[in-house]
């Protein structure tokens, strides 16, 4: 049996341990904010945090998650108070279709923990999620805005 916590709630899992975390989140935990995009860890639409680190949940089997603490997009805000990265995404009007943005936000939150004051080059190296709408220009602005807001907060 796999025991893990998702957004602070303890859960146990007894199914196919080869199943990627993504499908546990979407189909069993009812957390559909995390998206399926490619299934091979390329696009990042499925990005969540495992023990604080951004990972691509389509490529992480349940077997590797015993004792892990998972945070998904649904667990990022504190009640009605959005995370500064979510706020920045709204303020910069980033989302177009919106499908990849949960993954982009989760990737950014983890990125800013390690790189609180990122340069363009840091962003280029640190954010690798695909956005098919091409919101990259606004994502870059939102990352910088979030970084600024988090430093002055």
């Amino acid at each position: 049996m796999i025991k893990l916590s998702i957004n602070g709630t303890e859960r146990s899992f007894e199914g196919d341990e080869e199943m990627p975390l993504l499908w546990h989140l979407r189909e069993e935990a009812g957390l559909t904010g995390t998206k399926f995009g490619c299934g091979i860890g390329q696009c990042g639409a499925c990005t969540v945090h495992v023990d604080g680190e951004a990972i691509r949940s389509c490529s992480v089997p349940m077997a590797s998650l015993n004792g892990a603490a998972i945070t998904t997009i649904e667990g990022l805000a504190d009640g009605d108070n959005l995370h500064p990265v979510q706020e920045a995404w709204i303020e910069e009007d980033v989302p177009q279709c919106g499908y990849c943005q949960a993954g982009q936000i989760m990737a950014t939150v983890a990125f800013l923990k390690d790189t609180p004051n990122p340069t363009d080059e840091d962003i280029n190296n640190g954010i690798t999620n695909i956005c098919r709408c091409g919101t990259y220009y606004r994502i870059r602005k939102a990352i910088k805005r979030a970084a600024e807001n988090m430093q002055t907060a």
């Binding site: 957390l31 997009i73 805000a77 959005l82 995404w89 709204i90 989302p95 177009q96």
Partner: peptide, 12 residues
């Protein structure tokens, strides 16, 4: 701004 933005960024 995108009227669905809050739903999108919170994973609704």
């Amino acid at each position: 701004k995108n009227v669905a933005a809050r739903d999108i960024v919170t994973g609704k």
